[in-house]
Design a protein around this nucleic acid. Sequence first.
DNA 1: CGTCGAGTTGGCCCTTGGGCCAATGCTCCG
DNA 2: CGGAGCATTGGCCCAAGGGCCAACTCGACG
Lengths: 205, 205
Amino acid sequence: MTDKFIVYLVDDDAGVLKALSRLLRGKGYDVRPYLSPRVFLEEHDATVPGCAVLDVSMPGLDGLELQRALTVANGFHRPVVFVTGKGDIPTSVRAMKAGAIDFLTKPVKDVDLFEAVSRAEGRDAEMRRLQSELESMQAKVDTLTPREREVLTHVVAGRLNKQIAGDLGTVEKTIKVHRSRMMEKLGIRTVADLVRMAEKLSRTK
Amino acid sequence: MTDKFIVYLVDDDAGVLKALSRLLRGKGYDVRPYLSPRVFLEEHDATVPGCAVLDVSMPGLDGLELQRALTVANGFHRPVVFVTGKGDIPTSVRAMKAGAIDFLTKPVKDVDLFEAVSRAEGRDAEMRRLQSELESMQAKVDTLTPREREVLTHVVAGRLNKQIAGDLGTVEKTIKVHRSRMMEKLGIRTVADLVRMAEKLSRTK
DNA sequence: CGTCGAGTTGGCCCTTGGGCCAATGCTCCG
DNA sequence: CGGAGCATTGGCCCAAGGGCCAACTCGACG
Protein backbone atom coordinates (compact mmCIF):
# COMPACT_ATOMS: atom_id res chain seq x y z
CA MET A 1 0.00 0.00 0.00
CA THR A 2 2.60 2.52 1.04
CA ASP A 3 4.15 2.19 -2.37
CA LYS A 4 7.62 3.49 -2.77
CA PHE A 5 8.01 6.84 -4.47
CA ILE A 6 9.15 6.39 -8.04
CA VAL A 7 10.95 8.78 -10.34
CA TYR A 8 9.87 8.40 -13.94
CA LEU A 9 12.69 9.67 -16.08
CA VAL A 10 11.92 10.46 -19.71
CA ASP A 11 14.60 11.66 -22.10
CA ASP A 12 15.34 10.67 -25.68
CA ASP A 13 19.06 10.98 -25.04
CA ALA A 14 20.34 7.67 -23.72
CA GLY A 15 23.41 9.30 -22.23
CA VAL A 16 21.42 11.83 -20.24
CA LEU A 17 19.00 9.13 -19.17
CA LYS A 18 21.80 7.00 -17.83
CA ALA A 19 23.52 9.87 -16.09
CA LEU A 20 20.39 11.14 -14.36
CA SER A 21 19.36 7.61 -13.44
CA ARG A 22 22.65 6.98 -11.74
CA LEU A 23 22.46 10.30 -9.97
CA LEU A 24 18.98 9.71 -8.60
CA ARG A 25 19.57 6.07 -7.76
CA GLY A 26 22.61 7.18 -5.83
CA LYS A 27 20.24 9.28 -3.75
CA GLY A 28 18.17 6.23 -3.04
CA TYR A 29 15.35 6.87 -5.49
CA ASP A 30 13.62 4.14 -7.41
CA VAL A 31 14.12 5.29 -10.99
CA ARG A 32 12.26 4.17 -14.13
CA PRO A 33 14.02 5.44 -17.25
CA TYR A 34 12.18 5.85 -20.55
CA LEU A 35 13.69 6.74 -23.89
CA SER A 36 10.26 7.09 -25.44
CA PRO A 37 7.64 9.48 -24.09
CA ARG A 38 4.94 7.40 -25.77
CA VAL A 39 5.98 4.20 -24.11
CA PHE A 40 6.12 6.02 -20.80
CA LEU A 41 2.62 7.40 -21.25
CA GLU A 42 1.28 3.98 -22.23
CA GLU A 43 2.74 2.28 -19.21
CA HIS A 44 2.03 5.13 -16.87
CA ASP A 45 -0.05 4.35 -13.83
CA ALA A 46 -1.25 7.43 -12.01
CA THR A 47 -2.10 5.47 -8.91
CA VAL A 48 1.46 4.84 -7.83
CA PRO A 49 3.28 7.63 -6.00
CA GLY A 50 6.00 9.32 -7.94
CA CYS A 51 7.07 12.23 -10.08
CA ALA A 52 8.15 12.69 -13.67
CA VAL A 53 11.43 14.19 -14.73
CA LEU A 54 10.95 15.10 -18.35
CA ASP A 55 13.11 16.40 -21.12
CA VAL A 56 11.30 19.27 -22.77
CA SER A 57 12.14 18.60 -26.36
CA MET A 58 11.54 15.08 -27.48
CA PRO A 59 10.49 13.65 -30.82
CA GLY A 60 6.83 12.78 -31.20
CA LEU A 61 5.57 13.94 -27.87
CA ASP A 62 7.27 16.89 -26.28
CA GLY A 63 7.56 17.56 -22.59
CA LEU A 64 4.77 20.09 -22.37
CA GLU A 65 2.33 17.80 -24.12
CA LEU A 66 3.35 15.00 -21.85
CA GLN A 67 2.82 17.23 -18.86
CA ARG A 68 -0.67 18.05 -20.04
CA ALA A 69 -1.39 14.36 -20.53
CA LEU A 70 -0.30 13.67 -16.97
CA THR A 71 -2.41 16.48 -15.65
CA VAL A 72 -5.86 15.08 -16.23
CA ALA A 73 -6.02 12.53 -13.42
CA ASN A 74 -9.17 13.42 -11.45
CA GLY A 75 -8.07 16.90 -10.52
CA PHE A 76 -4.67 15.83 -9.35
CA HIS A 77 -1.48 16.10 -11.33
CA ARG A 78 1.59 13.97 -11.45
CA PRO A 79 4.33 16.35 -10.26
CA VAL A 80 6.63 17.20 -13.16
CA VAL A 81 10.21 18.43 -13.18
CA PHE A 82 11.54 19.62 -16.50
CA VAL A 83 15.07 19.30 -17.72
CA THR A 84 16.18 20.92 -20.91
CA GLY A 85 19.23 21.55 -23.03
CA LYS A 86 17.79 23.99 -25.48
CA GLY A 87 14.68 25.51 -24.00
CA ASP A 88 13.54 29.08 -24.16
CA ILE A 89 11.81 31.42 -21.75
CA PRO A 90 8.28 31.16 -23.19
CA THR A 91 8.49 27.39 -22.88
CA SER A 92 9.68 27.53 -19.29
CA VAL A 93 6.94 29.98 -18.43
CA ARG A 94 4.30 27.81 -20.00
CA ALA A 95 5.61 24.82 -18.10
CA MET A 96 5.55 26.65 -14.79
CA LYS A 97 2.08 28.05 -15.45
CA ALA A 98 0.93 24.51 -16.10
CA GLY A 99 2.12 23.61 -12.63
CA ALA A 100 5.60 22.21 -13.14
CA ILE A 101 7.62 21.81 -9.97
CA ASP A 102 10.73 23.16 -11.61
CA PHE A 103 12.35 23.78 -14.95
CA LEU A 104 16.07 23.03 -14.97
CA THR A 105 18.61 23.74 -17.68
CA LYS A 106 21.36 21.38 -18.66
CA PRO A 107 23.89 20.87 -17.40
CA VAL A 108 21.67 20.16 -14.42
CA LYS A 109 23.24 20.82 -11.08
CA ASP A 110 22.84 17.87 -8.75
CA VAL A 111 21.50 19.91 -5.89
CA ASP A 112 18.91 21.55 -8.10
CA LEU A 113 17.65 18.19 -9.30
CA PHE A 114 17.58 16.74 -5.81
CA GLU A 115 15.81 19.77 -4.47
CA ALA A 116 13.22 19.61 -7.26
CA VAL A 117 12.59 15.88 -6.92
CA SER A 118 12.34 16.27 -3.18
CA ARG A 119 9.73 19.01 -3.58
CA ALA A 120 7.91 16.82 -6.08
CA GLU A 121 7.88 14.00 -3.56
CA GLY A 122 6.41 16.26 -0.93
CA ARG A 123 3.74 17.55 -3.22
CA ASP A 124 2.86 14.08 -4.44
CA ALA A 125 2.47 12.82 -0.89
CA GLU A 126 0.29 15.76 0.06
CA MET A 127 -1.86 15.31 -3.04
CA ARG A 128 -2.37 11.65 -2.32
CA ARG A 129 -3.19 12.26 1.29
CA LEU A 130 -5.77 14.84 0.30
CA GLN A 131 -7.15 12.70 -2.46
CA SER A 132 -7.59 9.61 -0.33
CA GLU A 133 -9.26 11.69 2.33
CA LEU A 134 -11.68 13.10 -0.20
CA GLU A 135 -12.32 9.70 -1.72
CA SER A 136 -13.12 8.09 1.58
CA MET A 137 -15.54 10.89 2.42
CA GLN A 138 -17.12 10.74 -1.00
CA ALA A 139 -17.49 6.99 -0.70
CA LYS A 140 -19.52 7.44 2.45
CA VAL A 141 -21.65 10.14 0.91
CA ASP A 142 -22.33 7.77 -1.96
CA THR A 143 -23.95 5.29 0.41
CA LEU A 144 -26.62 7.83 1.31
CA THR A 145 -30.08 7.55 -0.14
CA PRO A 146 -31.30 10.49 -2.26
CA ARG A 147 -33.43 11.73 0.59
CA GLU A 148 -30.60 11.55 3.07
CA ARG A 149 -28.43 13.54 0.70
CA GLU A 150 -31.05 16.24 0.45
CA VAL A 151 -31.27 16.42 4.20
CA LEU A 152 -27.49 16.59 4.35
CA THR A 153 -27.34 19.70 2.21
CA HIS A 154 -30.06 21.39 4.21
CA VAL A 155 -28.39 20.60 7.52
CA VAL A 156 -25.08 21.93 6.24
CA ALA A 157 -26.92 25.06 5.18
CA GLY A 158 -27.88 25.51 8.81
CA ARG A 159 -31.59 24.84 8.41
CA LEU A 160 -33.66 23.54 11.29
CA ASN A 161 -35.36 20.16 11.03
CA LYS A 162 -38.70 21.92 10.93
CA GLN A 163 -37.63 24.13 8.05
CA ILE A 164 -36.13 21.26 6.13
CA ALA A 165 -39.39 19.41 6.53
CA GLY A 166 -41.22 22.36 5.04
CA ASP A 167 -38.80 22.59 2.15
CA LEU A 168 -39.06 18.92 1.37
CA GLY A 169 -42.82 18.78 1.87
CA THR A 170 -42.78 16.41 4.78
CA VAL A 171 -42.81 16.52 8.59
CA GLU A 172 -40.11 17.09 11.16
CA LYS A 173 -40.16 13.54 12.39
CA THR A 174 -39.21 12.20 9.00
CA ILE A 175 -36.31 14.61 8.73
CA LYS A 176 -35.04 13.50 12.10
CA VAL A 177 -34.92 9.94 10.90
CA HIS A 178 -33.12 10.77 7.66
CA ARG A 179 -30.76 13.02 9.52
CA SER A 180 -29.92 10.41 12.10
CA ARG A 181 -29.28 7.71 9.51
CA MET A 182 -27.23 10.14 7.45
CA MET A 183 -24.94 10.99 10.36
CA GLU A 184 -24.70 7.31 11.20
CA LYS A 185 -23.63 6.37 7.67
CA LEU A 186 -21.09 9.15 7.49
CA GLY A 187 -19.62 8.16 10.81
CA ILE A 188 -19.96 11.73 12.02
CA ARG A 189 -21.31 12.86 15.36
CA THR A 190 -21.42 16.64 15.30
CA VAL A 191 -22.78 19.23 12.92
CA ALA A 192 -19.39 20.96 13.05
CA ASP A 193 -17.70 17.92 11.56
CA LEU A 194 -20.46 17.57 9.01
CA VAL A 195 -19.95 21.13 7.83
CA ARG A 196 -16.21 20.67 7.60
CA MET A 197 -16.66 17.53 5.55
CA ALA A 198 -19.07 19.23 3.20
CA GLU A 199 -16.72 22.18 2.82
CA LYS A 200 -13.82 19.97 1.85
CA LEU A 201 -15.88 18.09 -0.68
CA SER A 202 -17.33 21.21 -2.23
CA ARG A 203 -14.09 23.16 -2.27
CA THR A 204 -12.38 20.80 -4.67
CA LYS A 205 -15.01 19.76 -7.12
CA MET B 1 -13.92 52.80 -2.36
CA THR B 2 -14.18 50.91 -5.62
CA ASP B 3 -10.86 52.37 -6.66
CA LYS B 4 -9.90 52.04 -10.25
CA PHE B 5 -7.46 49.32 -11.14
CA ILE B 6 -4.01 50.79 -11.72
CA VAL B 7 -1.09 49.44 -13.70
CA TYR B 8 2.23 50.31 -12.14
CA LEU B 9 4.80 50.24 -14.88
CA VAL B 10 8.45 50.08 -13.86
CA ASP B 11 11.24 50.09 -16.41
CA ASP B 12 14.52 51.96 -16.48
CA ASP B 13 14.24 52.41 -20.22
CA ALA B 14 12.26 55.57 -20.91
CA GLY B 15 11.42 54.44 -24.40
CA VAL B 16 9.94 51.16 -23.29
CA LEU B 17 8.11 52.92 -20.49
CA LYS B 18 6.49 55.31 -22.90
CA ALA B 19 5.60 52.64 -25.40
CA LEU B 20 4.01 50.32 -22.86
CA SER B 21 2.22 53.22 -21.22
CA ARG B 22 0.66 54.23 -24.46
CA LEU B 23 -0.30 50.66 -25.22
CA LEU B 24 -2.02 50.09 -21.89
CA ARG B 25 -3.64 53.51 -21.77
CA GLY B 26 -5.04 52.77 -25.19
CA LYS B 27 -6.72 49.78 -23.60
CA GLY B 28 -8.26 52.03 -21.01
CA TYR B 29 -5.94 51.26 -18.13
CA ASP B 30 -4.84 53.86 -15.63
CA VAL B 31 -1.06 53.63 -15.92
CA ARG B 32 1.58 54.93 -13.51
CA PRO B 33 5.02 54.83 -15.12
CA TYR B 34 8.20 54.70 -13.01
CA LEU B 35 11.75 54.92 -14.26
CA SER B 36 13.09 54.09 -10.82
CA PRO B 37 12.17 50.93 -8.96
CA ARG B 38 13.11 52.60 -5.69
CA VAL B 39 10.82 55.53 -6.21
CA PHE B 40 8.04 53.13 -7.15
CA LEU B 41 8.58 51.09 -4.01
CA GLU B 42 8.61 54.21 -1.84
CA GLU B 43 5.39 55.53 -3.26
CA HIS B 44 3.74 52.16 -3.47
CA ASP B 45 0.46 51.77 -1.66
CA ALA B 46 -0.65 48.16 -1.40
CA THR B 47 -4.18 49.18 -0.52
CA VAL B 48 -5.13 50.38 -3.97
CA PRO B 49 -6.11 47.78 -6.55
CA GLY B 50 -3.63 47.25 -9.31
CA CYS B 51 -0.81 45.20 -10.72
CA ALA B 52 2.85 45.79 -11.42
CA VAL B 53 4.46 45.37 -14.81
CA LEU B 54 8.16 45.15 -14.09
CA ASP B 55 11.30 45.03 -16.12
CA VAL B 56 13.44 42.23 -14.77
CA SER B 57 16.84 43.84 -15.01
CA MET B 58 17.05 47.28 -13.53
CA PRO B 59 19.86 49.07 -11.80
CA GLY B 60 19.79 49.11 -8.01
CA LEU B 61 16.73 47.01 -7.44
CA ASP B 62 16.01 44.27 -9.92
CA GLY B 63 12.62 42.93 -10.81
CA LEU B 64 12.79 39.81 -8.67
CA GLU B 65 13.79 41.77 -5.60
CA LEU B 66 11.00 44.19 -6.26
CA GLN B 67 8.59 41.31 -6.61
CA ARG B 68 9.67 39.97 -3.25
CA ALA B 69 9.24 43.39 -1.70
CA LEU B 70 5.70 43.55 -3.03
CA THR B 71 4.94 40.09 -1.75
CA VAL B 72 4.92 40.76 1.95
CA ALA B 73 1.57 42.51 2.30
CA ASN B 74 -0.33 40.47 4.94
CA GLY B 75 -0.30 37.24 3.00
CA PHE B 76 -1.46 38.81 -0.20
CA HIS B 77 0.72 39.74 -3.13
CA ARG B 78 0.55 42.52 -5.61
CA PRO B 79 0.14 40.68 -8.94
CA VAL B 80 3.32 41.04 -10.98
CA VAL B 81 3.87 40.73 -14.71
CA PHE B 82 7.47 40.65 -15.86
CA VAL B 83 8.82 42.04 -19.06
CA THR B 84 12.38 41.45 -20.10
CA GLY B 85 14.79 42.01 -22.91
CA LYS B 86 17.65 39.89 -21.75
CA GLY B 87 16.35 37.40 -19.24
CA ASP B 88 17.27 33.77 -18.89
CA ILE B 89 15.38 30.62 -18.01
CA PRO B 90 16.44 30.37 -14.36
CA THR B 91 15.28 33.91 -13.80
CA SER B 92 11.92 33.30 -15.42
CA VAL B 93 11.47 30.13 -13.39
CA ARG B 94 12.30 31.90 -10.16
CA ALA B 95 9.83 34.64 -11.03
CA MET B 96 7.05 32.17 -11.77
CA LYS B 97 7.79 30.17 -8.63
CA ALA B 98 7.51 33.38 -6.68
CA GLY B 99 4.00 33.78 -8.06
CA ALA B 100 4.40 36.04 -11.06
CA ILE B 101 1.38 36.23 -13.34
CA ASP B 102 3.50 36.04 -16.44
CA PHE B 103 7.00 36.56 -17.73
CA LEU B 104 7.09 38.15 -21.15
CA THR B 105 10.05 38.65 -23.44
CA LYS B 106 10.64 41.76 -25.48
CA PRO B 107 9.50 42.59 -27.96
CA VAL B 108 6.28 42.09 -26.04
CA LYS B 109 3.30 41.12 -28.10
CA ASP B 110 0.32 43.33 -27.37
CA VAL B 111 -2.06 40.47 -26.87
CA ASP B 112 0.29 38.77 -24.44
CA LEU B 113 0.57 41.89 -22.35
CA PHE B 114 -3.16 42.49 -22.38
CA GLU B 115 -3.85 38.93 -21.48
CA ALA B 116 -1.38 39.07 -18.61
CA VAL B 117 -2.64 42.37 -17.23
CA SER B 118 -6.17 41.15 -17.52
CA ARG B 119 -5.33 38.03 -15.55
CA ALA B 120 -3.56 40.21 -13.01
CA GLU B 121 -6.66 42.33 -12.67
CA GLY B 122 -8.77 39.28 -12.05
CA ARG B 123 -6.44 37.90 -9.46
CA ASP B 124 -6.14 41.23 -7.73
CA ALA B 125 -9.90 41.58 -7.50
CA GLU B 126 -10.27 38.09 -6.13
CA MET B 127 -7.53 38.65 -3.59
CA ARG B 128 -9.11 41.84 -2.38
CA ARG B 129 -12.53 40.29 -2.17
CA LEU B 130 -11.13 37.47 -0.08
CA GLN B 131 -9.04 39.76 2.04
CA SER B 132 -11.85 42.14 2.86
CA GLU B 133 -14.06 39.20 3.73
CA LEU B 134 -11.42 37.85 6.08
CA GLU B 135 -10.78 41.24 7.60
CA SER B 136 -14.41 41.87 8.32
CA MET B 137 -14.71 38.48 9.98
CA GLN B 138 -11.54 38.99 11.95
CA ALA B 139 -12.73 42.40 13.07
CA LYS B 140 -15.82 40.82 14.56
CA VAL B 141 -13.80 38.10 16.26
CA ASP B 142 -11.62 40.82 17.74
CA THR B 143 -14.62 42.29 19.55
CA LEU B 144 -15.05 39.06 21.49
CA THR B 145 -13.91 38.84 25.08
CA PRO B 146 -11.23 36.23 25.86
CA ARG B 147 -13.81 33.94 27.36
CA GLU B 148 -16.10 34.23 24.38
CA ARG B 149 -13.20 33.37 22.12
CA GLU B 150 -12.48 30.24 24.12
CA VAL B 151 -16.09 29.20 23.87
CA LEU B 152 -15.97 29.90 20.14
CA THR B 153 -13.15 27.45 19.59
CA HIS B 154 -14.86 24.77 21.63
CA VAL B 155 -18.14 25.20 19.82
CA VAL B 156 -16.40 24.99 16.46
CA ALA B 157 -14.75 21.81 17.70
CA GLY B 158 -18.23 20.37 18.12
CA ARG B 159 -18.20 20.23 21.91
CA LEU B 160 -21.43 20.36 23.87
CA ASN B 161 -22.09 23.20 26.28
CA LYS B 162 -21.79 20.79 29.14
CA GLN B 163 -18.39 19.55 27.96
CA ILE B 164 -17.12 23.06 27.33
CA ALA B 165 -18.14 23.96 30.85
CA GLY B 166 -16.12 21.07 32.17
CA ASP B 167 -13.10 22.03 30.09
CA LEU B 168 -13.24 25.63 31.22
CA GLY B 169 -13.98 24.76 34.82
CA THR B 170 -17.36 26.39 34.98
CA VAL B 171 -21.02 25.48 34.54
CA GLU B 172 -23.22 24.98 31.50
CA LYS B 173 -25.28 28.07 32.16
CA THR B 174 -22.24 30.31 31.91
CA ILE B 175 -21.23 28.76 28.61
CA LYS B 176 -24.69 29.37 27.22
CA VAL B 177 -24.37 33.06 28.01
CA HIS B 178 -20.92 33.38 26.45
CA ARG B 179 -22.04 31.41 23.48
CA SER B 180 -25.11 33.51 22.94
CA ARG B 181 -23.21 36.77 23.18
CA MET B 182 -20.50 35.41 20.91
CA MET B 183 -22.98 34.50 18.18
CA GLU B 184 -24.64 37.86 18.60
CA LYS B 185 -21.39 39.78 18.20
CA LEU B 186 -20.39 37.76 15.15
CA GLY B 187 -23.75 38.33 13.55
CA ILE B 188 -24.11 34.62 13.01
CA ARG B 189 -27.15 32.51 13.71
CA THR B 190 -26.22 28.91 13.02
CA VAL B 191 -23.38 26.65 14.05
CA ALA B 192 -22.90 25.78 10.40
CA ASP B 193 -22.07 29.37 9.56
CA LEU B 194 -19.83 29.59 12.60
CA VAL B 195 -17.83 26.59 11.50
CA ARG B 196 -17.48 27.95 7.97
CA MET B 197 -16.26 31.27 9.32
CA ALA B 198 -13.72 29.59 11.56
CA GLU B 199 -12.53 27.42 8.69
CA LYS B 200 -11.93 30.39 6.44
CA LEU B 201 -10.04 32.25 9.13
CA SER B 202 -7.90 29.30 10.06
CA ARG B 203 -7.18 28.18 6.51
CA THR B 204 -5.29 31.34 5.61
CA LYS B 205 -3.32 32.23 8.70
C1' DC C 1 -15.49 55.73 46.07
C1' DG C 2 -18.66 54.59 42.29
C1' DT C 3 -19.27 53.03 37.66
C1' DC C 4 -18.37 49.82 33.95
C1' DG C 5 -17.10 45.70 31.51
C1' DA C 6 -16.21 40.93 31.97
C1' DG C 7 -17.22 36.72 33.96
C1' DT C 8 -20.41 34.11 36.68
C1' DT C 9 -24.58 31.73 38.18
C1' DG C 10 -29.65 30.61 39.10
C1' DG C 11 -34.34 29.95 37.84
C1' DC C 12 -37.95 29.38 34.50
C1' DC C 13 -39.59 27.90 30.29
C1' DC C 14 -39.80 26.91 25.47
C1' DT C 15 -37.73 25.02 21.29
C1' DT C 16 -34.76 21.63 19.04
C1' DG C 17 -32.40 17.51 18.48
C1' DG C 18 -32.38 12.86 18.76
C1' DG C 19 -33.00 7.78 20.38
C1' DC C 20 -36.38 3.68 20.58
C1' DC C 21 -40.21 1.02 19.04
C1' DA C 22 -43.74 0.33 15.86
C1' DA C 23 -46.12 0.65 11.52
C1' DT C 24 -47.50 1.74 6.59
C1' DG C 25 -46.95 2.23 1.54
C1' DC C 26 -44.16 1.56 -2.62
C1' DT C 27 -40.93 -0.25 -5.88
C1' DC C 28 -37.74 -3.47 -7.45
C1' DC C 29 -35.86 -8.05 -7.74
C1' DG C 30 -35.31 -13.08 -7.47
C1' DC D 1 -45.42 -13.80 -4.50
C1' DG D 2 -42.31 -12.38 -0.61
C1' DG D 3 -38.54 -9.96 1.03
C1' DA D 4 -35.31 -5.75 0.75
C1' DG D 5 -34.59 -1.04 0.60
C1' DC D 6 -36.49 3.47 0.92
C1' DA D 7 -39.50 7.06 2.50
C1' DT D 8 -42.75 8.21 5.87
C1' DT D 9 -45.10 8.95 10.29
C1' DG D 10 -46.63 8.53 15.28
C1' DG D 11 -45.83 8.31 20.20
C1' DC D 12 -42.87 8.77 24.11
C1' DC D 13 -39.17 10.67 26.50
C1' DC D 14 -34.90 12.70 27.45
C1' DA D 15 -30.97 15.73 26.38
C1' DA D 16 -29.29 20.02 24.59
C1' DG D 17 -29.78 24.80 23.02
C1' DG D 18 -31.23 29.16 24.02
C1' DG D 19 -34.09 33.46 25.60
C1' DC D 20 -35.35 36.52 29.70
C1' DC D 21 -34.74 38.45 34.16
C1' DA D 22 -32.01 38.99 38.11
C1' DA D 23 -27.89 39.04 40.85
C1' DC D 24 -23.02 38.86 42.44
C1' DT D 25 -17.78 39.36 42.16
C1' DC D 26 -13.66 41.74 40.62
C1' DG D 27 -10.44 44.61 38.64
C1' DA D 28 -9.87 48.83 35.99
C1' DC D 29 -10.67 53.60 35.47
C1' DG D 30 -11.88 58.28 36.60
